[in-house]
Amino acid sequence: MSDESNERIAALEKELAKLRSQVDTGAAGEEPTEVQANSAWLAVRLARHPKRPHALDYIERVFTGFQEIHGDRAFGDDPAIVGGFARLDGRAVAVIGQQKGRDTKQNVFRNFGMPKPEGYRKALRIMRMAVKFNRPIITLLDTPGAYPGIDAEERGQAEAIAISLREMARFGVPIIAVVIGEGGSGGALALGVGNQVFMLKNSVYSVISPESCAAIIYRDASKAEQAAAALKLDAPALLHFGLIDRIIEEPGEGAHTDYDQAAAYMKATLISSLAGLSSLGPQQLIDQRYEKFRRMGNFFEEAATV
């Protein structure tokens, strides 16, 4: 590896150590009252917790015989999205997850969980295969957002996400999406068009990161806490607005305290949800999914002009 990248890694490690200490002291009660007052910001911090289980942590605990497949058959393989086929309680399913890294080296490899167009196209390829072989699709959402870089733009980041949204609406197999950590805007949503959409208790799902939102509205990225509260991005808020179907329980103070228990809660929910969807035929699944999103956001009035 070049000196330059070693230097960069060293700098990132330092930054990470600083952030970690903030996370730890913060949870221990640096500003306990404020944290409690703002449950949305607490959820943001738990969703980004350095020890929070990632997609592969759930995949190995919830599913058996996971066989990962790679590549979009056009440009390359994106390690920020993992996917393949596995068994859920004996039933073969396709499973696709957005994957973050644990340490710096992994994070550089996984691009901090920020997918590029080839990642979304790989996911779509796996989903089309699932339709062909009549397998349900389960997606795990956890990304700060789709990667905002030159190469991603050149290869059509927006197009890749848009096509994924439209095609997921077309598939005649059950689709279940679970937000396991950060549901970062369109980058997460691209895999989120499910017959059922769940959020883990301490996950978040948002149109914009609280930092970017704060930078826009308060011209100060450090006011992310306020922005998080304003955006109403925590699981109870999304359930309240009818944007998700259910909240999945997390153990103790969060999924990071007990991976096995967190996975067990998810597994139970997936199995019962899939059982419910299994009674629907392909066209019913398409229609149910369509109607569900069709109703979302009926927050307007049609009064005549004053």
């Binding site: 949204l165 609406a169 077309r170 805007s185 369109g186 149109v207 914009i208 991005l233 979302m296 927050f299």
Partner: peptide
Amino acid sequence: ARMQEGAISLMQMVKISAALMRLDE
């Protein structure tokens, strides 16, 4: 997407894209 309507704005992306799937069909 309009930040001031949070995740509700986000879901409009799906709503419209799904409708375009029907137009396509």
